[in-house]
Design a protein around this nucleic acid. Sequence first.
DNA 1: CACAGTTTGCAACCCAGTTGCACGGAATCC
DNA 2: GGATTCCGTGCAACTGGGTTGCAAACTGTG
Lengths: 147, 147
Amino acid sequence: MKYDSKMCETLLESHGIKPTANRILVVKALAESLRPMSLSELECEILSVDKSSVFRVLTLLREYHLVHVIEDGGDGVRYELCRSTDGHEHDDDQHVHFYCEECHRTFCLTDIPIPTINLPEGYVLENINYMAKGRCPKCAHKKENSW
Amino acid sequence: MKYDSKMCETLLESHGIKPTANRILVVKALAESLRPMSLSELECEILSVDKSSVFRVLTLLREYHLVHVIEDGGDGVRYELCRSTDGHEHDDDQHVHFYCEECHRTFCLTDIPIPTINLPEGYVLENINYMAKGRCPKCAHKKENSW
DNA sequence: CACAGTTTGCAACCCAGTTGCACGGAATCC
DNA sequence: GGATTCCGTGCAACTGGGTTGCAAACTGTG
């Protein structure tokens, strides 16, 4: 998918957010990334913007359900653009993620839906985090060869 | 399940760990807890032991596969006693966890196994973290009444 | 008892995430 | 158009969980 600044701008507006320069940059970075990004990854990606500003933009985007967070198994949380039908409270596009313990990247397995379970009586489900961990194709391959 | 100090001691020994006072306390706390505990929860539970000591005990227990960690969706990681057949590299007892966004506690749904998926070509699976989030029976009930 | 190795508590450190604050630019109101 | 308010931003400082360094206490072995 190709994203230019203009598209990010309208995306923001369609969610009722004023499209400032920083916000567009953050959305663009997220949109162009194939993988969910951590705060620090975003910081590195957009050096022109201060860490705290990136943080505040992300918080804002979360409030307006334009991004959601997932926990990579590693250190912190990662942010992912909601690609679902816009503006919904809950994201329909929940899918399985894969965390590579070698290169510490998180992949979206977009076409694998999260298998559901039957919760015991009384529990109210909000959302599910399904994180598979191991080695991504590239790292698994590398290892194989180095042995 | 009832756990006294003696049992914890033998549990440690059976894993090849010298059973010191602190270690027994930590294992006991974990064993008695119905839920996986965070480092800080353990700190509060065992006030007599220093934070860093708890931390070191936990690291040790992890090395010897007596406890494993899971990510609650919240702030950090939680520690859970491995109840699987002892000493295995990988825990057979992986089950679904439920994180209550109200009271921030993590529950083990011990009798719900993690549903498996078919990973795309090339990915090497190590383990899976299945975390359902929402409200636990108690909190869901509370909310219901307050409305 | 002396000695080497291990375990522990304390204090200091680290660092990602977060907040306070004051400047600067945009929107709003005479 | 110019004053005023509001909002977004960068900087610096703070926070708190996790981690490490170090020296004291403790263990056990000859």
